[in-house]
Computed example of a mutant assay.
Amino acid sequence: MLLAIDAGNTNVVFAVHDGTEWRGRWRIATRPDRTSDEYAVWLLALFQHSGLKPAQIDRCAIGTVVPAALYNLRRLSREWFEVEPLIARSTVHWGFDIRVERPQEVGADRLLNSLAAHHHYRGPLVVIDFGTATTFDVVDADGGYLGGVIAPGINLSLEALHKAAARLPRIGIGRPQAVIGRDTVAAMQSGIYWGYVGLIEGIIGRIKAEAERALKVVATGGLAPLFAEGTTVIETIDPDITLEGLRLLAERNPVPILQKPVREIP
């Protein structure tokens, strides 16, 4: 089985794939100083609850945009699952060209999204990821990664609005019933929601105009369904696209299983 680890700026997602389907998905807040032992205590309890055993894991793939978290995630794979992890970076075999000036600067999540989106939906297409940042990644018809757009994430914008304006409260994101807000909270919700709908439609429109062709639009991230309600430009929602990218990358880049130490019997 494959243990896929997607370490983002906000959460680390762990998932197990048995070769046919995803057997479980669990998330924990990203904390770069969290040790491999802390991860293990938490994760193995969830394994037991799901009827999984550590010995069943024979592959591990890690994608992270938080370099400081990688050390302990790698130790988790090596020490607790005895598997050498595959690290998603620009130097591994992706099966497509990364057509940007500095491939090493592209976040692993963006390449993983592009890999899975092309595999499942073909191209050309755009992947919108509603994460800590809102990213738009453009994939060519042959699967090549062409670059994209990075905008502030919705929750970052909400937090900045609250912190920078003394009288504006911290609010949750939701689709407002009307564009014109009748109180402060409604006005803020409208500005964030319809402002981001405008951002999505504007950027997708400009990408299509620059590409001079039709592009499929796939969205992922927890807020994708909410924003898909407010616009017709999002055609498909795929919540597992990053994990699918890790699964596909692991298939293309087999790594050796660490040999268990031989213990002499006294």
Rank of each mutant, 00 (worst) to 15 (best):
M1S: 08
L3E: 06
I5Y: 07
I5E: 03
N9Q: 00
T10E: 04
T10P: 06
T10Q: 10
V12H: 11
A15H: 06
V16D: 04
T20F: 15
R23N: 11
R23V: 11
R27P: 08
R31Q: 14
P32K: 09
R34D: 08
T35N: 00
Y39M: 02
Y39C: 08
V41K: 14
V41G: 10
L43A: 12
F47M: 08
F47E: 07
F47H: 07
Q48P: 15
H49G: 15
G51Q: 12
L52S: 10
K53L: 13
R59Y: 05
R59V: 10
A61P: 09
I62L: 07
T64M: 05
V65I: 02
V65H: 05
V66K: 00
P67T: 10
A69R: 07
Y71A: 15
R75E: 13
R75W: 12
R78N: 05
F81N: 02
V83I: 01
E84P: 07
E84G: 00
L86Y: 02
L86I: 10
I87W: 01
I87Q: 03
I87H: 00
S90R: 06
G95R: 02
I98L: 01
R99L: 14
E101P: 10
R102G: 00
E105H: 04
V106F: 01
V106D: 02
D109T: 00
D109P: 02
L111S: 00
L111A: 03
N113F: 05
S114T: 08
H120G: 12
Y121P: 11
Y121I: 13
G123C: 10
V126P: 06
T132W: 07
T132M: 00
T134P: 11
F136W: 07
D140N: 06
D140K: 08
L146K: 06
V149M: 13
A151R: 04
G153Y: 05
L156W: 12
L158Y: 02
H162T: 12
K163M: 11
K163R: 12
L168V: 14
R170E: 14
I173R: 11
R175V: 14
A178M: 15
T184N: 03
Q189E: 12
Q189Y: 11
S190L: 05
S190N: 07
I192V: 15
G195H: 05
Y196A: 03
Y196L: 03
G202M: 05
G202P: 08
I203H: 06
G205E: 05
I207F: 09
E210I: 15
A211H: 08
R213C: 14
R213L: 03
A214N: 15
L215S: 01
V217N: 03
L223M: 10
P225W: 09
P225V: 08
A228Q: 09
T232N: 14
V233C: 07
I237A: 07
P239C: 07
D240L: 09
T242P: 10
L243M: 06
E244R: 10
G245I: 04
G245K: 02
L246V: 00
L246R: 01
R247L: 10
L249K: 04
A250F: 00
E251N: 08
P261E: 06
R263T: 15
E264L: 15
